[in-house]
Amino acid sequence: MTSGALIFQSVILGLLLGGLYALLASGLTLYFGIMRVVMIAHSAFLILAAYLAWWSQTRLGVDPLLSLVVTVPLFFAAGVLLQRGLLARLRPATLTMMSVLLTFAIAVIIEGLLGYAFTGTQRRVQLGYGTANIELFGARIAVVKLIAFGLAVAALLTLYLLLKRTTFGWALRATIQHPDAARLVGIDTNRVAGYGFGLGLATAAVGGTALALDTTIYPSLHWHWIGPLMAIIVVGGLGSVPGAAAAAMVLGLTQSLLQIPLNTTWAQTIFYLALFATLAFRPQGFFGGRLAQRF
């Protein structure tokens, strides 16, 4: 039954899925690096972006990809506001715990508003190229999945270049590594942290659009995403972007391959198994930097 072509197809699909996971996990990693915040609302913003893409396609007749022009700046601004207006106001001593509750509250509010505005009905973007496939060595890959992967890779690459090659990227990485020292050399860490949050939410905007292309969406879908994403950042070592990306690829691939012998639901448990195993045996994660030791 499990022919070579099927396995090959699963590997391809796993890698494509892993790309999307990597993009979203990089956003979560950014928040954690900047403020030690576990941002529960990340995946809720992801679904919000997916809904905006769906809405622009059905109501305005615009291709979902074009909605990025609006959602990316919008989410960037929302991220800056979120960090400057809400998270920075919390007491530093209890920041980790209270920020979880605050972002949880935001996630629930977004879910409730989406349910109120668009009802709980499952929605799907209908595209002209939605059913097109590409044959590749006997594996059939949906074009929309390739587009989604392309988006994710492009966004990750942009993020990488931004972090490594620009002055802002230096400042952001300095803020993550050592906020006090960053302030001493004249970096306005508050502003940089705000922009960092904006970048993180911008990844959710891109990911949401990519998600809307080939997934049925509903308001409570974000709970299916936040679990795997949190598992990925823990396995990758909290705070390490390359670690998160590597863990995302490995876990996405494993999930996709496990779907052959098991069904979709059981294959998802691999994320939680990986999460528990990592914390029990190697709490600093498998690809982690020094940051992760104590969280």
Partner: peptide, 21 residues
């Protein structure tokens, strides 16, 4: 074994995985 963030993550993951199972 480690500090707060992992605890929160585990507690949420616990709900999600048990719901799945």
């Amino acid at each position: 074994r480690v500090r707060g963030a992992s605890f929160v993550i585990v507690s949420i993951a616990l709900v999600l995985v048990l719901l799945l199972v």
